[in-house]
Write a protein that binds this DNA or RNA. Structure first.
Length: 636
RNA sequence: GCCCAUGUAGCUCAGUCGGCAGAGCACAUCCUUGGUAAGGAUGAGGUCACCGGUUCGAUUCCGGUCAUGGGCUCCA
């Protein structure tokens, strides 16, 4: 008998036959196998194995394992729904990043109560523990089967499958069209939670029927599920919309308009601090700062190509003395005109223009979301005009700058994407080729790992997008670096070369934070509202024990304010415990307590309480100021 | 834009099977002058999102509008 080589979690085993191989795999937590690079059912292991090489066990610890596991769970969801609502028609039910979903066509919308009911039914199905059984049948036969069951969505899917043979998976009398693989049996699913129900178009096409989608997730054990649910709770707690209200950072008014942000004093001072930091670092990095208007003639946007390629995101024009004007969706044309205002020599390049430019873009009402998706926002925009031989070096400088700026906010790990030519584009293919390779070279010289997003570029050039990971490990897209060979052409941008002839520079658009609104929203969630000292709206709260301490408290606060510290006094007629709680709820970094003891020391010793701490330390006023300044300057 | 849900005091939410609108927090005034996460009392605060319909009477029922929330490129 041929032995079967099996590998599980990096360990090698030899099994005498398929029976033993299956047993080995299952005992060690595997529920599927990787054979010749493709995932397969454990039950498919035959005499001599199913591949030339060793069979690698797939367990929940890998992404592929999670995906298989959750896909199987989605089948159980469909099974449960069919038992409770036989009239529901099945669409698709894949695994997704953090779970799975299944789409159903059913006349009545699912309610929260239904979700609980369905979840209970799933538990029953799991308890029954029926095996997942694969059946390979001719495509025509499958179509006949699903047509007879009235499963017209499955029939539609089958019509598009090119293979002659398709596979079904049957579990406890419930059969579904499925490529597989699956876990061996329903009882392998240990912990399930249905999370939400939402509408979703059949095949994501808004012209087609709206289906009911049930989202859920599953885990290998109850503990991990609970951990994930706790994570969802934490996400909810940190929601920037909730914290924005609680900490009085910003608001969105129905009367002003959806997607338009009102920055309150607390949010505005944080934004101002970020802007000051941004400006001074840009000046250090060799950028020149610009300001540009909010509207420009429609003809300008025609020349730039936005009118043709970006109009669906632009607002309707307004008329000024018979001439149509348009509110700006981007800043680039203005920077080009600043460049063109005077003749440039090759010695002037690269020219780096930066602006915190506020733009307005139309977003469909259904996609607006707090600060993260808005209709008016301020880009931390810059345009670099460079010679072709300077591109790669410039991109490298920008990458360094991105990493420095994002690092300042505590974002230390990134996902980087290189996006190539999309379907809708301007410019020649050779020009696209050149610019794409410049980006690639810069990334590789810096040794940065990246993924390629084929066709994800802007209409005017390829780009590098950088997603940061926040303190909860969530990825957010902020930075972008886009090469543009097109606009210099359209606007006839030139420089005088060393050869005395005119040449065309290339343009690099880039943003580090993306949009200040969005970046701020991300920061709120990243810090859970507890901003580091340099950003905190109120840095120090001076709290008094009794009324007789008010004057002294004001004096101390005045001394701190004199040093540029953002300080507030709390002289209310309340007990110290209450005032400490108030400062804690507002997430104020430092509280200073003023009572008889401190007064008798004449300011020689302040009682200082740090956010989150439970003890106070005694420091002198100058000592405290130094401590604050050091912490502010370190931006930690 | 589309599907579903939601919209009641500044905030978080009860409530009215159609009959004078409620709590806690916050706010104001007073008492208390208290040493490390909520001292006590009193008070003010509402076109129940908006518009229309049904009704003797609508915050409640019906229709529409607006806004907010969960989703709508993960392909058997």
């Amino acid at each position: 008998m041929l032995s079967i080589k099996v590998e599980i979690e990096g360990k090698q085993f030899e099994a005498a036959g398929p029976e033993e191989a299956r047993k080995l795999l299952l005992e060690r937590g595997a529920f599927a196998v990787l054979a010749d690079g493709a995932a397969a059912d454990i039950s498919s292991i035959k005499e001599g194995g199913i591949s030339a090489g060793p069979l690698t066990g797939i367990s929940f610890s890998s992404d592929e394992g999670k995906s298989i596991y959750r896909h199987s769970t989605s089948h159980l969801l469909a099974h449960a729904v069919k038992e409770l609502f036989p009239e529901a028609r099945l669409a698709i039910g894949p695994a997704i990043e953090e779970g799975f979903y299944y789409d159903f066509d059913i006349d009545r919308p699912f309610t929260v109560e239904d979700l609980a009911l369905i979840e209970k039914k799933m538990e029953e199905i799991i308890k029954q523990g029926n095996p997942f059984v694969r059946k390979d049948i001719p495509r025509g036969e499958a179509m006949e089967l699903f047509r007879s069951m009235g499963e017209n969505y499955k029939v539609e899917l089958l019509e598009e499958i090119p293979d002659d043979t398709v596979s079904l998976y049957e579990e406890g009398g419930f059969a579904d069209l499925c490529r597989g693989p699956h876990v061996p049996s329903a009882k392998r699913i240990k912990a399930v939670k249905l999370l939400s129900v939402a509408g979703a178009y059949w095949r994501g096409d808004e012209k087609r029927k709206m289906l009911q989608r049930i989202y859920g997730t599953s885990f290998d054990n109850k503990k991990d599920l609970d951990k994930y649910l706790a994570f969802l709770e934490e996400v909810k707690k940190r929601d920037h919309r909730r914290l924005g209200k609680e900490l009085d950072l910003f608001s969105i008014s129905e009367d002003v308009g959806p997607g338009l942000i009102l920055w309150h004093p607390n949010g505005a001072i944080i934004r101002k601090t970020i802007e000051d930091f941004w400006r001074s670092e840009h000046l250090k990095a060799g950028y020149k700062l610009l300001y540009s208007p909010h509207i420009a003639k429609v003809d300008l946007w025609k020349q730039s190509g936005h009118w043709d390629f970006y109009r669906e995101n632009m607002y309707s024009p307004m008329e000024v003395e018979g001439v149509p004007y348009e509110i700006k969706p981007m800043n680039c044309p203005f920077h080009i005109f600043v460049y063109k205002n005077s003749l440039k020599s090759y010695r002037d390049l690269p020219v780096r223009y930066a602006e915190l430019g506020t733009v307005y873009r139309f977003e469909r009402s259904g996609v607006l979301h707090g600060l993260l998706r808005v209709r008016g926002f301020t880009q931390d925009d810059a345009h670099v005009f460079a010679r072709e031989d300077q591109i790669e070096d410039e991109v490298r400088r920008i990458l360094d700058f991105v990493i420095f700026v994002l690092g300042t906010f505590g974002f230390e790990s990134y996902d980087i994407y290189l996006s190539t030519r999309p379907e809708k584009y301007v410019g020649g293919e050779d020009v696209w080729e050149k610019s794409t390779s410049a980006l690639r070279m810069a990334l590789e010289h810096k040794g940065l790992a990246y993924q390629v997003d084929d066709g994800g570029g802007a209409f005017y050039g390829p780009k590098i997008d950088i997603k940061v990971k926040d303190s909860l490990g969530r990825a957010w897209q902020c930075s972008t670096i886009q090469v543009d060979f097109n606009n210099p052409e359209r606007f006839d941008v030139l420089y005088r070369g060393s050869d005395g002839k005119e040449h065309r520079p290339i343009m690099i658009h880039r943003a580090l934070m993306g949009s200040l609104e969005r970046f701020f929203g991300i920061l709120v969630e990243h810090y859970a509202g507890a901003f580091p000292l340099w950003l905190a709206p109120v840095q120090v709260a001076v709290l008094t024990i009794a009324e007789r301490h008010a004057e002294f408290a004001r004096k101390i606060a005045g001394e701190l304010a004199e040093e540029g510290i953002r300080v507030e006094t709390n002289l209310e007629n309340e007990k110290i415990g209450y005032k400490i709680r108030e400062a804690a709820v507002r997430k104020t970094p430092y509280s200073v307590i003023i009572g008889d003891k401190e007064m008798s020391e004449g300011g020689g010793s302040l009682s200082v309480r740090k956010r989150g701490g439970e003890e106070t330390v005694s420091v002198s006023v100058p000592g405290f100021i130094k401590l604050l300044k050091d912490e502010i300057n370190s931006r930690r």
